[in-house]
């Protein structure tokens, strides 16, 4: 039980606790993977139902040439869409925060727009923009845009009133207050949004490729599914997971460079 009243924070076994925190999940993962491997091998599952874990890893390495090609396509779609989402989301958040009509008129509409399943209009984008890059980056932007906008709004609104008053007392104008106080203050929260959006961008690219594509990891996964080729499907998922983690990691590095002062306050989970 967590936070039981009689559990005092003991000093000495801190290292032991840390070790347990690492070893428990490690054991759980090992048991899971071993169970997967043994279950498939011992019960002789058909290859279209499930393949052993070791086969998936081998296939990841063996098929790397083709898989990296597809990964590159998905990467480009994700990056372009992500950039578009940031280019729309951040200025829109500025507008929502600073202009009252936009805040009262546009923001509720954007929230409702977010609640409706916009994935459903993905096929329409193919009708409008063909089968190339454009519809895909629009779908990606559609996925990634909302967390960026929302977190930028939260960040810009979270400025301490006392700090604003201090700026006013020292004679700073609106522009200076924005660039020297509000913006730096909002940056950590903006990065929270960008990090969320970075993983959503990859997922958006996959969905876009489900709808129509001739290359990319989503296409690869769907093709493998059509061929009942579960091994290829799993390798596609592994590559996608790595791609998503790389995106997230890249955002984390950019965050560290952009907001070095904030590192100490941040929680380790990277929220």
């Amino acid at each position: 039980m967590i936070a039981a009243p009689n559990r005092r924070p003991s000093r000495l076994p801190a290292l032991r606790e840390k070790l347990l925190d690492v070893s428990y999940p490690a054991v759980a993962v090992a048991v899971l993977l071993a169970g997967w491997e043994l279950w498939v091998r011992l019960t002789h599952q058909p290859r279209y139902i499930m393949v052993p874990f070791s086969d998936v890893i081998t296939a990841c390495w063996d098929g790397r040439g083709q898989l990296l090609h597809h990964t590159w396509v998905t990467t480009l779609e994700s990056i372009y869409g992500f950039a578009l989402a940031a280019a729309i989301g951040i200025p829109l958040a500025f507008a929502i925060v600073s202009l009252r009509p936009v805040q009262k008129g546009i923001f509720p509409l954007v929230v409702v727009y977010h609640v409706i399943p916009t994935i459903a209009i993905a096929p329409l984008l193919s009708t409008w923009f063909g089968f190339g890059l454009t519809p895909k980056l629009l779908i990606v932007a559609n996925f990634a845009f909302f967390p960026i906008m929302l977190n930028t709004i939260i960040g810009l609104r979270s400025t301490q009133p006392l700090q604003v008053q201090l700026f006013r007392v020292t004679g700073a104008n609106t522009w200076q207050t924005f660039w020297k106080l509000r913006m730096p203050n909002a940056l950590p929260q903006i990065f929270v949004g960008l990090k969320i959006a970075s993983t959503l961008a990859v997922i958006g690219a996959v969905v876009a490729e489900y709808v129509s594509a001739s290359a990319g990891l989503g296409y690869y996964v769907l093709l493998a599914n059509g061929n009942l080729d579960t091994k290829s499907l799993m390798t596609g998922v592994v590559y996608l997971s790595i791609l998503g983690s790389l995106f997230f990691g890249a955002m984390q590095i950019i965050e560290r460079v952009a907001t070095p002062w904030h590192l100490s306050q941040r929680s380790p989970i990277g929220r």
């Binding site: 279209y48 990891l217 599914n225 499907l233 998922v237 998503g244």
Partner: peptide, 16 residues
């Protein structure tokens, strides 16, 4: 940690 896996990518497996 499993949040890293894009769940919509394993969706086709569910069909099998």
């Amino acid at each position: 940690a499993t949040q890293v896996i894009p769940k919509l990518a394993i969706a086709p497996l569910f069909l099998i």
